[in-house]
C-alpha cells in the first residue's frame, strides 16, 4: 500500500531502511503463475524434466520474479511515478521453498536536473541471509 504520509526528501536520511517486504515460501504454483503472467515461457522454471535435462536438480525462480518483488518494495514506499532508475544483478538462483526478503537502504541524496533524488541499494535474501539479487534504484522525492 502507498503510505498515507508521502515520503519527503527532507525527511529521508542516508542509512534509512525501506520497509522490508517478506514473501511466503516460493511455491511451484507461483512459478507457474509467473510463467503465464510474465510471458516468460522458458521451461526451465516450470518443467522439471526440462530442468533436469539442462543439468539442474529442480526448477527455480525467474530472476525477474524477484525483481518484480523488489519493485513492489519500492512502490510500497513511494508512488511508482517517483522511480527514475532500477537496476539489478542476478547473483544467485532462488529455489523453490525459499522465503525471500526484499530490503532497501538509502545510500545517497543528491540533486540532478532540478529534481531531488535518493539512491537506494536493494537486495533479496533467503532465510539464511544468502543474497540472490543485488541492485539499486534512483527515486525522485518531493
Amino acid at each position: 500500500m502507498n503510505t498515507v504520509t508521502p515520503v519527503r526528501f527532507d525527511n529521508v536520511n542516508v542509512g534509512d531502511a525501506l520497509p522490508a517486504l517478506d514473501l511466503p515460501p516460493l511455491s511451484r504454483l507461483t512459478l507457474a503463475l509467473y510463467c503465464g503472467a510474465s510471458g516468460d515461457h522458458n521451461p526451465i522454471h516450470v518443467d522439471l524434466d526440462f530442468a533436469k535435462e539442462a543439468g539442474m536438480p529442480d526448477v527455480f525462480a525467474h530472476g525477474m520474479l524477484s525483481m518484480a518483488w523488489l519493485g513492489r518494495a519500492l512502490t510500497d514506499w513511494v508512488p511508482q511515478s517517483a522511480l527514475r532508475d532500477f537496476n539489478v544483478r542476478f547473483a544467485a538462483i532462488t529455489h523453490v521453498g525459499e522465503s525471500i526478503r526484499c530490503t532497501g537502504t538509502v545510500t545517497e541524496k543528491f540533486e540532478h536536473d532540478g529534481e531531488r533524488l535518493v539512491r537506494v541499494s536493494l537486495a533479496t535474501t533467503n532465510e539464511a541471509g544468502v543474497q540472490k539479487l543485488l541492485g539499486e534504484a534512483v527515486l525522485s522525492l518531493p
Binding site: P24, T30, W69, T75
Partner: peptide, 28 residues
C-alpha cells in the same frame, strides 16, 4: 503472480483515485 496487494495495480477505481488513467504498468 507477483503477490501484489496494492489495489492500484489491479482495480480500475483505485488506479484512477491515485491519478492514473488506467491500471499502471508496474516497474518490471
Amino acid at each position: 503472480a507477483t503477490g501484489q496487494t496494492d489495489p492500484v495495480y489491479s482495480q480500475d477505481e483505485a488506479a484512477r483515485a491515485a491519478g492514473h488513467p488506467g491500471l499502471p504498468v508496474p516497474p518490471t
